[in-house]
Design a protein around this nucleic acid. Structure first.
Lengths: 337, 337
DNA sequence: GTAATTTTTGTTAGCGATAAAATTTGTGGG
DNA sequence: CCCACAAATTTTATCGCTAACAAAAATTAC
């Protein structure tokens, strides 16, 4: 079956292509197409099963009504959540989302961004990977509308939406302290990411403000390439200090999952022997024998803010928004009370 | 910064657009462009940061090099896994994947398929939702290349890739029986999906072939709209029979997660009181106090088969493939030995 | 009845790229 | 010097659609 275009409908009805275009774009009124022809055209379009060629339309209009989204890893709970939120919001604004996953890889990230640009997306929503500063600068130079989410580079002035990571870590740590914990370990990735450093800072500030002397052994940095092994070592470390830690605060869900897996193996009792708290959420947390207390990111709000900011940018409004959101502490039963 | 096109490069170098096109498409040799001009053009393209407009190219070529993928729910582990596999394989074949999630909703599914077609994808890989038969038939009538994965409709002859669900359920059930279980419950969705019925059939056949008399109370059907409540009821039921079940086999990971959550609440000991086995996999399974024995689907192979089949179809080869794959039984510690 | 409007429909350029066909330039042989 | 042929480059039509503009048909005014 040959593809049917405007021309086919025009011939079928016996009118010009323009009329068909007007009618099928809802311009029948304004372009004063006779009711008679309008009806015939609609009918023919239906019968011939006409499908507008978006590619052609995009080319003509120099606008694709498409947003490119690059997440860090499609397997992260964060990624699927934010993708959903963004798709829903984009749909409201009549945009389609073109989606890609960088797998935290610099080259893949750059490649994806390029593919999306070549496909003429009208704008980009990006979860940047480590060392992608040059890519970001390139986008700025090329004047391509984009918004960063979750992560950003403080040395580059961009529109971005992210959690207030300092506050989240600060509040969560304070929560643990208030519950009587004195020796709180914090597990984070060994990373250059600003947003993760902010979590460190929040943790440290909370200790300080509550008069707890920080012990350098408490802050454990994990190499993501060597995640599970590093975590085992780190846990062994903090549980076997002369003054063992009475709580472990994980900076991400992936860290927490690996940590809990090992704690399970060690048969360490949670929260009896050690309390657990984590950033992000995971289905897995609910299946741990005691639901894990965690910081839930406002994915909906984030997605909405990202799309709305991007839409403004795409409408050529020069704006500069740095939106900072707060997380919810979802109290499970993994912290001693 | 204005977008630069072939024309800009042509003007900059002082040659015609055609030459530029030839050079940038690697046709310099065959079209015998002088080395001198070829070099100048490449240099200019670099300097001006030229980006080919895929939209224009697609329109001209009547081919977008894009595959549309519709998964059932981006939150399923299956979806992210298969998406990754498909993206990787598509990339090898030089296709980009346009992605959407139907959220198991019929209208959303139809809408997504239409959006993808309008965007002129060259072919579709679909995880069809319930009652989407008409959509599938429409695709056939429109002669749009597509492949179904995971699920299919036996009444419609299509190219599809799926697990051998009967065999998987049969083997897993047999595994339980071999381990000495006598009263095995099977939890499945109350659904019209053929692939899920196949799981029922596999379960039932295994019982029969092993001389176990089936008790109708063992097969529990869950309404997905009412998942958690239904599962609680079902679990209460099978654990409180005069002859309580000694194993529960879940037909999907989502069912298992909900079930385990409740078993946790009930403090039912696994595998002491009841053994657990599930289809699919989930990160959560590893965090359950005893890792859950489960059937792992060969997502890589599935993705590859889907893309390869689709590529053949898109190359206008009339083929008819029904590929059936086998799953691995990943033995955890959730089954009594 | 004709000019001036108003209503309705048709023609066409162009979005950015490709590629077939046409054209120009270069080379060597007779 | 002219011609044939090859090498190098340009011209042009086209993909399907939009929208400005042009043109035709219908209506109104006088």
């Amino acid at each position: 079956m040959k593809k049917v275009g405007l021309k086919d409908i025009a011939e079928h009805v016996g009118v010009s292509i323009a009329l068909v275009s007007y009618v099928l774009n809802g311009q029948a009124e304004i372009k004063q197409v006779s009711k008679e022809n309008a009806a015939k055209i609609k009918k023919a379009a239906e019968e011939l099963n006409y499908r507008p060629n978006q590619i052609a339309k995009s080319l003509k209009m120099l606008k694709t009504h498409t947003i490119g989204l690059v997440v860090a890893d499609i397997n992260y709970r964060f990624s699927t959540g934010i993708t959903r939120a963004i798709e829903a919001e984009a749909k409201k604004e009549n945009y389609t989302v073109l989606f890609g996953s960088s797998n935290e890889n610099e080259e893949t990230f750059a490649e994806l961004v390029n593919v999306l640009i070549n496909r003429q997306v009208d704008g980009l929503i990006l979860v940047p990977v480590e060392n992608s500063q040059d890519q970001i600068k390139m986008l700025q130079k090329a004047e391509i509308p984009f918004v960063l989410i979750d992560r950003n580079f403080p040395e580059i002035k961009t529109n971005h939406i992210a959690l207030n990571n300092h506050k989240a870590a600060y509040d969560a740590t304070t929560h643990l302290i208030k519950q009587g914990h004195q020796r709180i370990a914090f597990f984070n990735y060994n990373t250059t990411f600003f947003h993760l450093h902010e979590r460190n800072r929040g943790y440290l500030d909370a200790l300080k403000d509550n008069g707890i002397a920080f012990n350098a052994d408490w802050l454990q940095e994990i190499n993501s390439a060597n995640r599970y092994a590093d975590i085992q070592q780190a846990i062994d470390k903090v549980l076997n200090l002369s003054q063992p830690c009475d709580a472990v605060f994980f900076a991400t869900d992936t860290l927490a999952i690996n940590g809990l897996k090992y704690l399970n193996r060690l048969k360490v009792n949670v929260p009896g022997q050690v309390s657990i708290l984590s950033f992000d959420e995971s289905e897995a947390f609910e299946l741990f024998y005691c639901p894990v207390t965690h910081l839930q990111q406002p994915l909906e709000a984030m997605g909405q803010a990202a799309v709305n900011t991007l839409v403004e940018l795409m409408n050529h409004n020069k704006i500069n928004k740095q939106i900072s959101l707060v997380s919810d502490l979802v109290v499970g039963r993994s912290c001693r009370e």
